[in-house]
Amino acid sequence: MARYAFYPGCSLDTTAVEYGMSTHAVARKLGIEFLEVPDWNCCGASSAHMTDHLLALALPARVLALAETLPVNELVAPCAACHQRFAGVEYELSRDEELKKKVNSLLDRPYTGKVKVKSFLEVFANPETLDKIQKSVKRSLKGLKVACYYGCLFVKPPKVFNYADDPENPQAMDNIIRALGAEPVPWPYKTECCGASLAMTDEEICTKLCNDILRVAKDAGADCVVTCCPVCQQNLDMRQVSVENKYGTKYRMPVPFFTQLIGLALGIDAQALGFKKLFVSPVKMLQKVGAA
């Protein structure tokens, strides 16, 4: 059985509660074991790395050190921003012994680097699990057109990741969507930025970037934009109403997490996958695959 240290991050129980619900439901079906890192703290996200480099290393390093107490070799974080912070710590501290000592002087439990950071998408997109998913499909998503939106931080910058998909045209989510019977549409905005925390600090820019993404997805004929990042998801889903108001459009584009689509195809009830938590109604999309 595949087993990983699991870092939910601050959003999986709050703003991205459906990401957490669907992740755990799907993991149970596929026999993937996620062991939550005990007493984990926030990774600091962009606020830490904008403010203080050492702080931005030490906060995730505490989590990685705690993960070393678990019987695992790898850690996964479903949030792209958290994932990139962990990968950054691994990248920098494995190349700079002095810096590692400095960071460890800030921690109660030292970080050794024993537990490696793995991409959450790869938990599902590796050939073995992909095959298992394909064989476990109970409700094919045939006919559903999906714009796979990776955002930035699962693939950029590729140098910090142990395994990185093509940062300009990633494939992991496309392969997952194909295994479910759905059709990933070709579109050029897979890794264009949603604006991230500019939603709070400079909303107009974020609204413009989200409008570009939604418009291009719509033009590509997508029934939904599927995401793997809580920040992207919130900007594209909850704030879609602001985009529509500002640009006089009506996208009504559902923005589920990729784990919700896996769950649907595995025959899990839409309610248990948190589809009701989405702001833009997914009813049409669910009807299309006979799940509503």
């Binding site: 601050c10 709050t14 007493d39 926030c42 600091g44 606020s47 830490a48 403010t51 906060l59 600090t201």
Partner: peptide, 22 residues
């Protein structure tokens, strides 16, 4: 101004509780 205010507010909750409090 707004970015610094956001980062301060964000990190302030992390410093107090260990996790972000939205």
């Amino acid at each position: 101004r707004t970015v610094i205010a956001f980062n301060d507010a964000f990190l302030g909750t992390v410093k107090s509780y260990g996790r972000l409090f939205e």
